[in-house]
Amino acid sequence: MCGRYAITLPPEAMRASFGYREQPNFPPRYNIAPTQPVPVIRPHGSARQFLLMRWGFIPGWVRDAKDFPLVINIRGESAAEKPSFRNALARRRCLMPADAFYEWRRSGTGKQARNDAFLFRRPDRGFFAFAALWETWSAPDGSEIDTVAMLTGPASGPMAAIHHRAPIILAAHDHDAWLDPGATPQQTRRLIEPPPDDLLEIVAIGPAINKVANDGPELQEPASAAAPAEPARKVAKHPEDDPQGSLF
């Protein structure tokens, strides 16, 4: 599960890393949250295209978005069978670039329960890409919104000690295979795997990440021994995962 992430490196570096033609200029974001516009990379002809989409997948058949739950994560192991996602898995695969993401570990019970925040990033601080699906949703007024959500799978290794789900992070040499419009879900199934145990480092951070309004480099500073933990909050259930909606 992934409910917050970051893109802090320069736009030029991301363009060089992912090879799209557009030249967007965007500020560093340390606390990207659901429903916000997020960078997405998808195939466009024989090239790659950069564009912004709403983080929160809405299937095309939904008539009123208020009647559909917020989907920020899609279970990779069942996406091919779910009516909401199987067409997007077959035809609308994309990348969500990032250089960090966050997760919370819940511990204790009752008044002693707490949520501790953790930062996940590559040791070299470089970019990586979440495997994602997108869809264009048509509102009742005729307007269209491009929406997106990342795939997740069972967590393994050190990540499993923080949360039972993990985002699917594609190796750079698998980006073309994931974006290939001619590839079938059966052919891309091998790519839907949790990241290797040694891909990311894990850093305990403070509770400031819990507030969407906080968006600066201090969010990624390691937590001190004296930093107060965030009191645990009730986590809303979700049909695809628990998106930790109470933290947004």
Rank of each mutant, 00 (worst) to 15 (best):
M1H: 10
M1W: 06
C2T: 07
G3R: 03
G3K: 01
R4L: 05
Y5G: 01
I7A: 02
T8M: 01
P11Y: 06
A16W: 02
Q23Y: 01
Q23V: 11
P28G: 04
Y30N: 02
N31D: 09
P34I: 07
P34A: 12
T35Y: 00
Q36G: 05
Q36P: 03
Q36A: 15
V38M: 06
V40E: 02
I41L: 13
S46K: 14
S46L: 14
R48Y: 11
G56V: 12
I58D: 13
P59C: 10
V62K: 09
R63I: 08
D64Y: 02
A65F: 00
F68C: 04
N73V: 14
N73I: 15
G76W: 03
S78F: 07
K82F: 08
P83G: 08
R86H: 10
A90S: 12
R93I: 12
M96P: 08
A100Y: 01
Y102W: 05
Y102K: 04
W104D: 05
R106M: 01
S107M: 06
G108T: 06
G108R: 06
G110H: 00
K111E: 11
Q112Y: 04
R114L: 09
D116R: 13
D116C: 05
A117I: 04
R121S: 14
D124L: 02
D124I: 03
R125S: 10
G126A: 13
G126F: 12
F127G: 04
F128P: 08
F130L: 14
A131K: 14
A132N: 13
A132L: 12
A132K: 13
P140F: 03
D141E: 09
D141G: 03
D141S: 04
G142T: 09
S143H: 09
E144R: 13
E144P: 00
I145V: 14
D146F: 07
D146Y: 06
V148H: 06
V148E: 05
A149W: 07
A149F: 12
A149K: 05
M150R: 07
M150P: 07
T152E: 06
G153R: 11
G157N: 00
A166Q: 09
A166V: 15
P167Y: 09
I168Q: 09
I169F: 05
L170Q: 10
L170F: 10
D174W: 02
D176S: 12
D176E: 15
D176C: 05
A177M: 09
L179Q: 11
L179T: 10
P181Y: 03
G182F: 12
A183V: 05
A183R: 13
A183M: 06
P185I: 08
R190F: 06
I192K: 04
E193Y: 05
P194R: 09
P196M: 02
I202A: 01
V203A: 04
N210Y: 03
N210F: 02
A213K: 12
D215F: 06
P217S: 08
L219M: 07
Q220F: 06
Q220C: 14
Q220K: 05
E221C: 07
E221Q: 13
S224R: 14
A225I: 14
A227T: 15
P228Q: 11
P228W: 10
A229P: 02
E230N: 15
E230L: 15
E230W: 15
A232P: 05
R233D: 04
V235S: 06
H238R: 04
P239L: 13
P239W: 11
P239S: 11
P239E: 13
D241R: 07
D241W: 10
D242W: 13
P243D: 12
P243F: 12
G245N: 09
S246D: 14
S246I: 08
